[in-house]
């Protein structure tokens, strides 16, 4: 345990500076995005959510796209040292066990990057909200959900994330993508990100192709029954959620074995 603490400290002293720099870059990009998307007051097309707040149309796509990029880039950078022999030797010869090195990798590449992403996004978003709510605080518009004239108050990030009940089934996805790119970073010796992205895309394309083929073969000659049963829908989403959790765990296991068997 003491040694694990030392390892965290070592990795931080070695990669912390670069990590903090990446956070600054992230913050810069996010501020830029928000800056160019200050909503125009005269544009009357507001999207109202169920709580009577106005949604920022660009927020969720930005949150997901940049989040995906940030988390996968951080994950694919972590083991990149293993692609260069001299660095890999230094890492492997550090007196800590493979398990400790692996957990340290998860802490830095996944947990820390997801938390810091949420935090930075949230803080920038909060400042921004503060600013535009102040700007708009005397204005009212018609909420199409209620038909009433309502003061314009913008929804928060948290509101948006909980606006659709299916969203909660997606919460394992950041871990899933992070795990894939972490594996990619130890699997490939160079160009980790591109190679991982290409192979994952190819794999997904193949799986989707097979699924469609299989689906059309199974459902051939059968007619479609429309179902809006929430239970059934939830069941599919639950399977989706747990399989993304299970896949992340399996990919982490493979990464661990890969780390243990890494030779230089």
């Amino acid at each position: 345990m003491n040694r694990f603490g030392l390892l965290l400290k070592r990795q931080w002293l070695e990669f912390g500076k670069i990590y903090l720099m990446s956070l600054v870059v992230l913050a810069g990009i996010l501020i830029g995005f928000y800056f160019f998307n200050i909503p125009d007051f005269n544009r009357s097309l507001y999207r109202w959510d169920d709580h009577g707040h106005v949604q920022l149309g660009f927020r969720l796509p930005t949150f997901m796209a940049i989040g995906f990029l940030f988390i996968t880039i951080e994950a694919s950078a972590y083991f990149s040292a293993f692609g260069q022999k001299p660095k890999a030797i230094m890492e492997l010869m550090t007196p800590a066990s493979a398990t400790e090195k692996f957990i340290c990798a998860i802490v830095f590449s996944t947990i820390l990057s997801i938390i810091s992403y949420l935090l930075i996004f949230y803080v920038i978003d909060a400042f921004f909200l503060n600013y535009i709510n102040e700007l708009w605080h005397n204005n009212k518009a018609t909420n199409y959900n209620t038909g009433q004239l309502t003061p314009v108050v913008f929804s928060t990030l948290f509101d948006d994330l909980t606006s659709e009940r299916e969203f909660k089934f997606l919460f394992a996805l950041p871990f899933f993508f992070s795990s894939i790119f972490l594996l990619g970073s130890i699997y490939f010796n160079r160009f980790h990100y591109i190679k991982t992205a290409v192979s994952v895309t190819a794999l997904f394309a193949f799986i989707i192709f097979i699924t469609i083929k299989f689906g059309s073969w199974v459902t051939e000659g059968k007619s479609r029954v429309n179902s809006s049963n929430l239970m059934e829908k939830d069941f599919v989403f639950t399977i989706f959620f747990w399989s993304s959790v299970a896949l992340s765990l399996i990919i982490w296991l493979i990464t661990y074995v890969r780390l243990k068997e890494k030779e230089v």
Binding site: R3, L92, M93, P95, A96, S97, A98, E100, K260
Partner: peptide, 9 residues
Amino acid sequence: RQPALLSQI
């Protein structure tokens, strides 16, 4: 790759 050995190399 036990830490006890690595710290002696």
